[in-house]
């Protein structure tokens, strides 16, 4: 296997009686787009939360670029190059779209104990921020206050924020949640472009998108990995079909 960028080892998390992560072990090599699928409540968001550092696991290890990051804070992990997007949009609603992304750039442009210069006039923050907006197709919307953007635009901005931190790896939690077919198609296109330069862990319910994008797929049910492999193998896996894919077809059926 190529250089592992992210290594997860026996990660375990309980919420009272619920086991949200049941000894999850996973390895994501550099350059891979690894999708995680699973029914609602399977523990996908909880896994991302632990990788990002927001949720402390009860057991297990997380290694990023060979370094044990299990005990590192959220902001330290971001500085190391782990960037996440949120399933439930989490933005600066009272700022403009450009301000949102510029903050993400600023977070990775040295310390912010700078008290004098107007940050909104700093080219070294604004230019990369505009580039990140352009990558997700929001260039024309930079001056709009974020609370006035549409849901789809919020989802795009989520990605732009993560991108603006110049990450080594993206953790994307259902980037297409609540999007219409046109917006979804657009997002697939965006992700395909990002895939060229970045390692991505993608959680997504949109099976079409997942099978179109993923190099490998892991299926999570009740916090446990029931299958992991290339898309064809997952599609053919009987247990997966029964536990998850079948259910999906019924639901949409």
């Amino acid at each position: 296997m190529a250089d592992p960028l992210l290594e997860i080892e026996a990660l375990t998390k309980r919420f009272g009686g619920v086991i949200a992560s049941d000894a999850i072990s996973l390895c994501v090599p550099k350059g891979e787009l690894h999708a995680i699928i699973g029914p609602n409540g399977a523990g996908k968001t909880t896994l991302i939360g632990q990788l990002a550092g927001e949720i402390a696991p009860d057991g297990g290890r997380i290694r990023f670029e060979g370094r044990d990051v299990t005990a590192l804070s959220v902001d330290r992990r971001s500085q190391l190059g782990l960037a996440r997007s949120f399933q439930i949009t989490s933005l600066f609603l009272d700022f403009t779209a450009l301000d949102n992304v510029a903050l993400a750039v600023q977070a990775h442009a040295g310390h912010s104990f700078r008290f004098w210069r107007n940050a909104r006039r700093e080219v070294e923050l604004r230019t990369p921020a505009r580039a990140a907006l352009a990558r997700v197709g929001l260039a024309a919307r930079e001056d709009v206050i974020v609370s006035n953007l549409s849901h789809g635009e919020h989802r795009q901005l989520e990605i732009a924020m993560a991108l603006a931190t110049t990450p080594r790896m993206l953790l994307l939690d259902e980037p297409m949640a609540g999007m219409g077919p046109d917006e979804s198609a657009r997002m697939v296109k965006t992700l395909r472009e990002l895939k060229r330069g970045l390692t991505i862990l993608l959680i997504e319910h949109d099976m079409e998108a997942v099978f179109a994008l993923a190099d490998r797929i892991t299926v999570l049910v009740y916090g446990r990995i029931i299958a992991s492999g290339p898309p064809e193998a997952i599609r053919a896996n009987a247990e997966v079909r029964q536990a998850y894919l079948g259910e999906q077809e019924d639901r949409h059926g």
């Binding site: 990002a52 927001e54 804070s73 959220v74 902001d75 971001s78 500085q79 960037a83 996440r84 949120f86 989490s90 933005l91 600066f92 609603l93 009272d94 700022f95 301000d99 510029a102 903050l103 993400a104 600023q106 977070a107 990775h108 912010s112 104990f113 700078r114 008290f115 004098w116 210069r117 107007n118 940050a119 909104r120 700093e122 924020m161 993560a162 603006a164 931190t165």
Partner: peptide, 22 residues
């Protein structure tokens, strides 16, 4: 309006996201 000011205003708006972006 400085970088410092953007950080404290960002933290008012959404501290969780501020930490997530580093």
């Amino acid at each position: 309006n400085s970088r410092f000011g953007m950080v404290i205003q960002g933290a008012r708006s959404n501290d969780r996201r501020m930490r997530a972006i580093g």
